[in-house]
C-alpha cells in the first residue's frame, strides 16, 4: 500500500516535471480556454440563450481539461514510447495501468488550471453577469467530471498502447469529441446519431452536471440523475480499463511494440 502511494506520487512528480517543460501543453492549458471562451461569448452574446454564462465558462474550461486529458492518454504514451521507457516500466513490478492512471491524474490536476483561467477570464468578460448559482455542487460536479474523464482517458490510453499509429487517432478523437461532448453547446441540438454516441461519453454527462449548477433554480432530481450518470460512466470505464488490461499485457508481449522500431 505504502509502495503504491509512493509510485503514484512519484509518477505524478516525474510526469509534471516532464510535462510542464513542453510548450504545446502550456498552449493547450492556457490559451485554449481563452479562445473557446471568447468564441462562445461572441456566438451566444446576442442569441439570448438561457445558460449563456455556463457555456462561456465551461466551454473554455472543459475543453482545456478535455484536451489535456486526451493529450495525456495519447501523447504521453507516444512520448514514453519514444523515450523507450515503456519496456522498463512493463518489466517492473508496478502495473502499467497504475502508472498511466497516475499520469492521467497528474494531467487532471494540471488541467484544473484551465478551469481556473476560464473562470477568471469569464469574470472579466461577463462582469456582473457571471454567477455560479450552486457553488458547492459546482465543485462536486467538477470532481465528477475529472474522475469520469480520467477513467475514459485511461481506456483510451490502453488502446493507444497497442498501436504505434496513434498520432492520427489523437487528432481524430480530440476535436470531434469536443463537439459532440456537449462542452461548448447543448447536446440537444445535435442529430440523433451524434446524441447516441455522445451518451456514451462521460464528458457529455459531466458537462451537463456542471452546467446545471449555473441555473439559479434549486437543484432538481434531474441534476442528481446526470450527476449519477457521470459517476456511473466513470466507474464503467474504469472497470473496462481494469478488465481489458490483463489481456492487453499479453497482447503487448505478443506484438512487442512498446518501442520505436
Amino acid at each position: 500500500m505504502r509502495a503504491t502511494t509512493n509510485v503514484i506520487r512519484s509518477t505524478i512528480q516525474v510526469h509534471m516535471k516532464n510535462t510542464l517543460a513542453r510548450p504545446m501543453f502550456q498552449i493547450v492549458l492556457v490559451f485554449q480556454p481563452f479562445v473557446i471562451a471568447t468564441t462562445t461569448y461572441m456566438v451566444y452574446r446576442d442569441a439570448n440563450v438561457d445558460d449563456f454564462v455556463a457555456f462561456v465558462v465551461l466551454g473554455g474550461g472543459l475543453s482545456g481539461i478535455w484536451s489535456a486529458m486526451t493529450f495525456s492518454s495519447l501523447g504521453d504514451i507516444n512520448r514514453e514510447r519514444w523515450f523507450g521507457t515503456l519496456n522498463p516500466m512493463l518489466a517492473s513490478p508496478t502495473s502499467l495501468l497504475l502508472v498511466f492512471a497516475a499520469k492521467i491524474t497528474a494531467n487532471a490536476l494540471l488541467s484544473l488550471l484551465s478551469m481556473g483561467i476560464a473562470i477568471v477570464y469569464s469574470l472579466i468578460l461577463l462582469g456582473s453577469n457571471f454567477a455560479i448559482a450552486h457553488g458547492l455542487a459546482f465543485v462536486g460536479a467538477l470532481g465528477l467530471f475529472l474522475f469520469s474523464t480520467s477513467a475514459f482517458a485511461l481506456c483510451l490510453s490502453l488502446v493507444f498502447l497497442l498501436s504505434r499509429t496513434t498520432q492520427v487517432m489523437q487528432n481524430f478523437i480530440e476535436a470531434p469529441l469536443l463537439v459532440i461532448g456537449g462542452m461548448a453547446f447543448p447536446v440537444s441540438i445535435l442529430p440523433g446519431w451524434a446524441q447516441a454516441i455522445s451518451a456514451l461519453l462521460p464528458i457529455r454527462w459531466g458537462s451537463e452536471t456542471l452546467r446545471l449548477t449555473f441555473d439559479p433554480a434549486p437543484l432538481s432530481t434531474h441534476w442528481w440523475t446526470v450527476a449519477g450518470l457521470t459517476l456511473l460512466s466513470g466507474v464503467v470505464y474504469l472497470g473496462l480499463a481494469t478488465f481489458f488490461f490483463r489481456r492487453l499485457e499479453h497482447r503487448v508481449r505478443y506484438l512487442g511494440n512498446l518501442e520505436l522500431a
Binding site: 509512493n6 509510485v7 512519484s10 509518477t11 523515450f83 523507450g84 521507457t85 517492473s92
Partner: peptide
C-alpha cells in the same frame, strides 16, 4: 536494451534512478 533510450532526458540522473526505485517498490 541497446541505445540511449530508456531514460527521461529532462530529469536528472538521480531522479531517473529514484523513479525506477519507486517502480520497483
Amino acid at each position: 536494451l541497446g541505445g540511449e533510450r530508456g531514460l527521461y532526458w529532462r530529469l536528472s540522473g538521480y531522479d531517473n534512478l529514484r523513479y525506477f526505485a519507486d517502480l520497483y517498490r
